[in-house]
Design a binder for these strands. Structure first.
Lengths: 291, 291
DNA sequence: TTCAGAATGTAGCATTATTTTCAGAGTAAA
DNA sequence: TTTACTCTGAAAATAATGCTACATTCTGAA
């Protein structure tokens, strides 16, 4: 069944993806992105959408096992007909070819519900206020996470580090935390993640930080961490999932939206920093060659 | 609103049906019978199916208010696209009280699109096979990430560590990687994250690991990492976002679904390990009180 | 760096699709 | 039946699509 000349167009693309060239991959993505409609126009239109040349499209049709572009198009039409005429259009499931009960579909359902509910109750003023805080170059930013949410803290830190300076990731070991609190002054910002089970140490850290005059931005779940009473701004994300654990997807989502907003706010500087960073990476590579 | 030049093709046909001639009605029936696929081929093919001549088809396209047959065909494609692309009701806006243009809404739109497209082309057999690999207690699991995707690797590691033993997180510093490869044997599994810009070191690690007989499970983006040629199983996630960076939300999603599936597969042991872990945490706290 | 080989795009051509023209068939009224 | 009219399809004219050959660019190895 690993023959080239069998299966749907999409399957063939996936199967051969590794053997495809750069331009062909670009084309594949366009075709899969709006499948199968994008492949039903003229070869020229498809080529233009994918920003490749028409011959590239024709060549790929050959690679996929068709006699030419029109033949592939006919295959697409036939597929489409089969899909549309099947009794219950299978657009109900997220992952095609999987039953509704497959974990992927159940998860997709849960995650989009979480996202919808979270966004519905999310306070935009809070969001914008946090963007302002994180964009302010005069403030020191500290980031801290818990046992699981440490990865989220790390993710935020990695990105913020590119956007601006004065960002510190507080390590997991709470023994060292007082040293960090010692340096916090009025106007500084502590971004903390506290998802159930809530960690007592995080609560203490939040308390100490606010006492020093720092502002607390707290990421927590729908039940709310006890540290929330110290928070200037908070995000309560829905984290339910068909699993023994909670889902961090929505938190990741808010993080990325925040990062994007801050990056826009400080675009000039961000761009310069990214450019410099590129150069530094290049020099690192050079350095490695000599070792 | 009874103008000729508005509404879908089907609506226009219905509206004008009374004024259509004999041959045109024959044609209409064929078009509506297998709507809209039958209208997506060539004018000749459609004419033959309906047992009318090509000019009849062209004339009807004009009657329906289009400039010609190709124009009508474009309209059909556009309709189809609209139908297919909103299997899950598109929200006018996700975050209430925010304009569509707010970064939160734009991000929500992008992320759900990414999720839908990724799931559509995700290979279920691959998914299930990876679940089996990660559930197999006799295999050593190694996890490694790149500069940004390190957080994802970390997240997977943290959870897998609870579910099973023999899980190792390979640190970011590639100098130490050979030591880890040294220990890999046939049947071991390396889970690697390689999102653009693809890291050369990751590619090398994948190569070395597979040469040792390890199986590679690769998380990459829609363009495909060069390391993919060594992978036994791969996940290509869509990562587009309205931001200078890529979105990791979909990758996080797949990770969590994987974790949930593995946890289900090994539920007995997972539950015991979680229980034990709880007790260990309690003892840690106790220990701290004495210091 | 240089060079070979692959990948990609440009241009022109053959092919195919679409439209126009026009002749014949069908239809209804006188 | 005739006549005027519309409808329809065959065939030619026009337009476009898709393919081939070739030139250029890119990539990776020596």
């Amino acid at each position: 069944m690993s023959e080239t000349s069998s299966g749907t167009v999409a399957e063939r693309i996936s199967r051969l993806f590794e053997t495809l060239t750069h331009a062909e991959r670009k084309l594949s993505n366009v075709m899969l992105e709006n499948y199968p409609v994008s492949g039903l126009g003229t070869i020229t239109a498809l080529a233009e959408t994918a920003e490749v040349s028409a011959p590239t499209v024709a060549r790929m049709a050959r690679k996929l096992g068709y006699g030419g572009f029109p033949e592939m198009q006919t295959a697409l039409r036939t597929e489409l007909e089969a899909t549309l005429s099947s009794p219950i259009a299978k657009h109900d499931s997220w992952a095609a070819n999987a039953p509704d009960t497959h974990i992927l579909n159940r998860f997709a359902e849960a995650v989009t519900d979480n996202l919808r509910q979270t966004l519905q109750q999310l306070d935009l003023e809070d969001f914008d206020a946090v963007v302002d805080l994180l964009s302010d170059p005069s403030r020191n930013i500290y980031v801290v996470g818990g046992r699981i949410s440490r990865s989220m803290a790390d993710y935020l830190f990695t990105h913020m580090q590119v956007i601006r300076d004065r960002v510190t990731l507080i390590p997991p070991n709470s023994n060292t935390w007082p040293h960090y609190v010692l340096n916090m002054t009025v106007g500084d910002v502590l971004v903390a993640f506290d998802i159930r089970r809530y960690e007592h140490d995080t609560h203490r850290l939040a308390e100490m930080a606010t006492e020093q005059g720092a502002q607390l931005v707290l990421f927590t779940d729908q039940w709310g961490s006890p540290a929330a009473k110290h928070a200037s701004h908070g995000f309560r994300a829905r984290i339910e999932a068909p699993s023994a654990w909670d889902s961090s997807v929505v938190i990741m989502f808010i993080l990325e939206a925040l990062i994007a907003a801050v990056e826009t706010e400080r675009w000039e500087e961000t761009r310069n920093r990214m450019k410099t960073l590129e150069q530094l990476f290049d020099r690192t590579k050079l350095f490695r060659k000599f070792t």
